[in-house]
């Protein structure tokens, strides 16, 4: 009799434990972690069979982004700062050379709308510093002297500056590269379903276990609203907008995306969302399209048939490529 009751009790316990485990596996809880890196909030969501191994891979992905930030960010020891301080030639790592190479290509194809040589101009406005200001026209002209697609060239891993005072800034492309490198770390750890979001620079690995990733696109004028949703997998998404990193003076908004032709914040767009195979390409294109505006911007994508874009023009009107129309769901 006692043995029978013990047997039944054991069955009951097994059933209860199995129920709880079933619940856990059905939900397939992802590892979710966030850190402040590269001047923004970076979120990583990763699905993996082994939670401990997935957590470790996510940590390694953050470390990789921190390494890229140290290499290409505004820190005193970065290669970007070293290039800016050099009078002519500088030797850089193959990774920085890779980023510069793509940046120079987009710069040339966008006729300078994407520009890696605006370091002095950005310092002048100080929008990403604690003390932004509106510089005089003379100051702006001086900061633009010698800038543009021809001001910088690359020979292997040697960077050549045309003028000694040229300030190099990889802010419009390095974050995307860091996101791609983090994705590489996760892939190498065997993770096939993950999302890395660095303040709008996003890379998606696979789909979620149950469906495609749903990506909301921020409305550039309403903080709590979205323009629409994209259903995506295995792709990068990057948005650049005039609402982030900006200050207002006399009712005018001054943001961090500069038009290299004027030295002032670009006014042809409110926001641009680009999807492309890599975040580094999407990042550079988002800035270029923002400066160029809807018509010229979307025309630039003829060089990049694998990329799609949504441009919210300066007047608030939305312009989309055909491919993106098929992926979007509007509210």
């Amino acid at each position: 009799m006692k043995r029978a009751i013990i047997l039944l009790l054991a069955l009951v316990i097994v059933a209860a434990v199995a129920g709880v485990r079933l619940r856990g596996s059905a939900e397939a809880e992802p590892v979710f972690s966030s850190r402040i890196l590269m001047g923004t909030v970076v979120e990583i969501t990763a699905f993996g069979a082994d939670r401990r191994a997935t957590t470790e891979a996510v940590r390694a992905a953050f470390d990789e982004m921190a390494r890229i930030e140290a290499l290409m960010g505004p820190g005193e020891e970065s290669e970007t700062v070293r290039i800016s301080r050099a009078s002519d030639f500088s030797e850089v790592s193959p990774e920085t050379a890779e980023v510069l190479s793509l940046g120079l290509e987009v710069s040339e194809r966008s006729h300078g709308a994407f520009d890696l040589t605006l370091g002095l101009l950005k310092d002048l406005w100080g929008i990403e510093s604690g003390s932004p200001r509106i510089p005089s026209d003379e100051e702006i002209l001086k900061a633009l002297e010698g800038t543009g697609p021809q001001a910088l060239s690359l020979e292997g891993t040697t960077v050549v500056k045309k003028s000694p005072g040229l300030g190099v800034d990889l802010g419009g492309i390095a974050k995307g590269y860091a996101v791609d490198k983090a994705a590489e770390v996760l892939l190498n750890a065997g993770i096939e379903s993950a999302a890395i979001n660095a303040g709008g620079d996003m890379r998606l690995l696979g789909a979620r276990p149950d469906r495609l990733w749903r990506i909301g696109i921020q409305d550039p004028r309403k903080a709590d609203a979205i323009l629409g949703t994209l259903e995506l997998q295995d792709i990068a998404v990057v948005t650049s907008g005039d609402y982030e990193r900006a200050f207002e003076h006399d009712g005018v908004r001054y943001h961090h995306l500069f038009d290299p032709r004027t030295g002032h914040p670009a006014r042809n767009a409110r926001s641009v969302t680009v999807i492309a195979p890599s975040a580094v390409l999407a990042d550079a294109l988002a800035t270029a399209l923002f400066v160029l505006g809807p018509e010229e911007g979307l025309a630039l994508l003829a060089h990049y048939p694998e990329a799609e874009a949504l441009v919210v023009g300066g007047d608030g009107e939305m312009h989309l490529t055909e491919g993106l129309k098929r992926k979007a769901i509007w509210p």
Binding site: N197, G216, I217, Q218, V237, G241, S271
Partner: peptide
């Protein structure tokens, strides 16, 4: 919490 079934998973901005 388990969260509500959201309109989107991530926000690009």
């Amino acid at each position: 919490g388990r969260g509500q079934e959201a309109e989107y998973d991530l926000l690009t901005r």
